[in-house]
Amino acid sequence: MLPHKSVVAVLRRNSRIFMANHCTSVLPNIRLLREVGVPQSCISMLFRHFTRLVILKHESFSQLVGEVKEMGFNMKKLTSLKAMNALWCRNTFNRNRQVYMMRWGWSEDDFLSAFRKCPRSMVVSEKKLMQVMDFWVNKMGWPSVIIAKYAIVCSYSLQKRIIPRCSVLKVLLSKGLINENLSKPCVLAYAEEQFLEMFVTKFVNQIPQLLSVYQENVDLQDVTS
């Protein structure tokens, strides 16, 4: 099922899988995944990245599968396994659900929509959740319900990705070098090299300080003024 290197990686991450009762947990769990249409590639990913789920008691595992299916996840996609992992972290999931809905005005539909798009955004720490939402809503001026449509922005690092990239975009917008309708969530999703090439290197001759803005080594007002 897994190549040798992957087996070693699984062992290092969670050796309990090799001590689990395969007949009553692991094998029935894998069989259930196959029955509901989870492809082998995703099952292999489950072993590598969500090992703790594989060794759950079959009753608990079946409950997670049932919940994910009921929420409308496509069981043929890896997102369904990420959703199972998020639901397994029940306390964090429920706490963040309350924060999104009570503190930021999301409806139940907003929450479920965001969860389907990015399960990982539901199991970040409450501190990070509040900081990221505060940035988008109070500093960037986004309505909080818009973030539900781009839930992945809640999973990115505020200091390492969101603020540096948004600072670069703010400078480029102030100089009229990019379209104001550019989708910020899409830009945040770019790989590091791709972002640098498209939004820093491309404009560095026109704005020599742009790389310093990205590295947060210069006051933004000195560049946009």
Rank of each mutant, 00 (worst) to 15 (best):
W142R: 06
N29K: 07
W106R: 07
S80I: 04
P3A: 15
Q131F: 13
N179F: 13
W104F: 14
P185Q: 02
S125P: 13
R13N: 07
K139I: 09
M101E: 08
K82V: 02
H58T: 10
E180C: 10
F73T: 06
Q215I: 04
C89H: 07
E59I: 06
P185I: 11
L78W: 01
S121C: 09
V7N: 12
V153H: 02
H22S: 11
V223D: 00
A191S: 05
L220Y: 01
L172V: 09
P185Y: 06
L56D: 02
W88G: 00
K5Y: 11
M130W: 11
V10D: 00
N179A: 15
I146K: 06
M140L: 09
E126Q: 06
L182A: 14
F203Y: 06
L158G: 05
C154F: 05
C154D: 10
V145F: 13
V153N: 03
R103W: 10
M84A: 00
K149W: 12
T92K: 10
L211P: 04
R97P: 07
A148G: 07
P208R: 14
K76Y: 02
I55A: 03
M198N: 04
L169H: 06
Q40F: 13
K139Y: 09
V38P: 03
K69Y: 09
F93W: 13
R52V: 00
S155P: 11
A20E: 15
R13H: 12
L87V: 05
G66N: 15
N14H: 08
Q131S: 11
L56K: 03
K175V: 07
L220R: 00
I178M: 08
R116P: 13
R34M: 08
N14L: 10
P164E: 02
K175Q: 06
S6V: 15
F93A: 02
Q194N: 04
E59V: 06
S125T: 09
S6N: 14
D134R: 01
T201H: 02
K170D: 12
L32K: 11
N96V: 11
R31N: 11
M122I: 12
K57R: 14
N91P: 04
R48H: 05
R120H: 13
V223H: 02
P39Y: 09
R97Q: 14
M130E: 08
T79G: 10
I43K: 01
S6K: 14
V10R: 01
